[in-house]
């Protein structure tokens, strides 16, 4: 599938700053599961960009701009080609950190007191690991109310960890109506199979309409922009 991304992120700096430093995680990478073409980051101001990697191996772009500045527009775009997917991340995908890291309780996770009960109820009839995680995913999707994909992904991660599955937050793009929107989902680790993407916002596993950008132990670690107030 071809996923065409053309996104504008507006970041506000209340009070106008004399200089601005932002951390961006907006760049997808070539992998066994996706191929990226013509990726670009454009800005409406003079700034310096520097690209490196964070501790999770995600592409991290630092943005440094001189002030006074009260607002920056960041244009991100390009094409991502994905193949048919069962949601299982290719074993060839580089993993700098082991699954057991993603069992930790993180301060950046949503605390829903009934999450444990929901998780246990959801998997009562489950047959095997994948089925359990699917039922959890569906249960979260059903009670989604008006929670955004980021909150749901965080809940999935917290619930899966309580069931002793390593789980992490993932950011990326979701193909929608010929274009793409920024999106969040989760990945859980099952021994002998690997990392599997689950998207509680749509109640399915993450398929070929999902293009992956970053993963981390919590939502803070996958935010597209850290350092300013991103306009909703």
């Amino acid at each position: 599938m071809r996923i065409a991304v053309d996104q504008t992120i507006t970041v506000d700096f209340p009070g106008s700053l004399s200089s601005v430093t932002l951390a961006l995680r907006v760049t997808p990478e070539d992998s066994h599961d996706q191929t990226v073409a013509g990726w670009r980051i454009g800005l409406d101001c003079d700034a310096r960009l520097s690209t490196g990697r964070d501790g999770y191996g995600n592409v991290l772009t630092m943005l440094y701009a001189d002030g006074p500045v009260d607002r920056i527009e960041i244009h991100v775009g390009g094409e991502i080609f994905t193949g048919p997917s069962s949601g299982i991340l290719s074993a060839a995908h580089p993993e700098p950190l082991p699954p057991s890291l993603f069992l930790r309780q993180s301060s950046g996770q949503p605390e829903a007191p009934d999450l444990a009960a929901l998780a246990i109820d959801a998997i009562e009839e489950a047959d095997g690991d994948i089925d359990r995680l699917h039922l959890l995913n569906v249960a979260l999707h059903r009670r989604a109310d008006d929670s955004g994909p980021d909150v749901l992904a965080g809940m999935f991660v917290a619930a899966a960890r309580r069931l002793s599955y390593p789980a992490r937050c993932v950011s990326g793009y979701l193909a929608r109506d010929g274009g793409a929107t920024p999106h969040f989902w989760a990945e859980a680790y099952v021994a002998d199979i690997g990392w599997i993407g689950f998207d509680p916002a749509i109640g399915l596993s993450a398929g070929e309409d999902h293009a992956r950008v970053a993963n981390a132990v919590d939502l803070n670690g996958v935010a597209a922009v850290v350092g300013g107030r991103v306009r909703p």
Partner: peptide, 18 residues
């Protein structure tokens, strides 16, 4: 034991590999 390290909040994944 692996969990002693990776389950420990003092292990900072943010700077792993640096």
């Amino acid at each position: 034991p692996e969990d002693l390290i990776f389950g420990n909040p003092q292990f900072r994944p943010e700077i792993a590999g640096m």
